[in-house]
Design a binder for these strands. Sequence first.
RNA 1: GCCCGCAUCGUCUAGCGGUCAGGACACCACCCUUUCAAGGUGGUAACCGGGGUUCGACUCCCCGUGCGGGUACCA
Length: 473
Amino acid sequence: MRTRFAPSPTGPLHFGSVRTALFAWLAARASGGQFVLRIEDTDQERYLEDSEALIMETLLWLGLTWDEGPEVGGSHGPYVQSQRTAIYREHAERLVTGGAAYWCTCSPERLTEMRERQRAASEPTRYDRHCLAIQDEVRRQRDELVPAVLRQRIEPGRTRWDDVVRGEISFDNADIDDQVLLKSDGFPTYHLAVVVDDHLMDITDVIRSDEWIPSTPKHLGLYQAFGWAPPRFAHVPPVLGEDRLKLSKRRGARNVLEYGELGYLAAAIVNAMALLGWSSGTEQELFTPAELVERFSLDRVHDSAAVFDPKRLDSLNGQHIRRLSVEELVEQLEFWLLGTSKETRRRLVPLLQERMVVMRDATSLAAPLLGDAPWDDDVVFPPRKVDGDTAIALLDTACAEVESGGLDDLTAMRERLTALLDSHGVKARDGFRVLYIAILGRAQGVPVFDAMAFIGVEVSVRRLRAARARLEL
RNA sequence: GCCCGCAUCGUCUAGCGGUCAGGACACCACCCUUUCAAGGUGGUAACCGGGGUUCGACUCCCCGUGCGGGUACCA
């Protein structure tokens, strides 16, 4: 199987477009075939600088490597459509010769008016073939350099295909427009380019978003006109935002790379994307990319739109983080715990790992251990259910404990402090909040005894005393 | 307007004529517990509506409704 991802360089990739790329990649990898990356830059007006690099960076980050395409090359290149214009021109000629395409010099104004008329008459809007009837005249106009487009001549009949995810779909050709194949600037439209390229690049399975369903009959018509066997088509459902609208750049869908900056793991993103429209059929929901490759198949792709749920991503990301080995996490955390040594991170990981949803959480969780622990603005101290006397006694005792080597045996120290709280009639769960606030600056965070062991005797004592001082005021 | 597609808990989904309609996320409760998490246990929660077909429909067919997409010299 050979599949491809063919984005147009009109901006960064969002969750929905990458999900489609992922399905194409998984299908190729699952079959042991190839995955091709092709840049569809036939629209010069919408071209956006840097998007090509951004697209590749995104794919690479997620591990969606391509066997052929920009950067890596391949035997079916070039892989950028703007470098293939001669190929399209040549194929367009073949269509003209075979009678499957014709030139049209209709003005945009006439076209607009025509469509309005059709709409008013409850007819489908499609080209009325005005120019087809006067080809001699059109030829003369073209000689005089009147701008012209090449149109596909749609044959009467019915077009049907067996879509890999949708099943049979069919269209009455009477509803299909005589599609523009070559624009007046000489560039091909998507429709011509995609068919020529998919065929020339030996793509066996066209996996694309379902917004292409209505233009598939045109593509099928082109395959027929060229005398080529069409590929299989798999139209995958769209990914919707929480507003139930399709994710799009225009509506501010987030650039996938931003998830990396937020601290999401590539593996978790891939996992979450795969679950949007695909399921394994088993109850397993946590997958590594390798496991996905093993299990994926196009025929298990669901056929209705999926709303992207960020909470689900969070959950998956937390699970992937917990699946990481200590060494892997130590490695990955370098960026989030800047300036720390590997050894330091090794000591931190056990305290952080099960508390992280995104990598970025490590930064705030570890902050009181790596630097100062300024008190949270709305911290209540002493906390509820703990009277001042008890708090003072606990702080003083803890201080003494720490100074006399209590950090060498955390369990024993904890037990003695628990006993102290007991004697004051305060529950450990309430009383120890005093310690959390003193050491971490707030009542939640990494286990406080481990935190004290990490920051050491001197810093622990200083923080305990500072907290104690607040109670005397 | 015309064409196409889709329809199971709030969300992602399993289901492919006979199930107490299963799982995950989220939510709630409890357990564990030095906080927060993590983990464990349990719970609330769904087949869009109407007709058929059938001994029997979430499952098949039709209609309606809703939603999505297309309808460009954009992809």
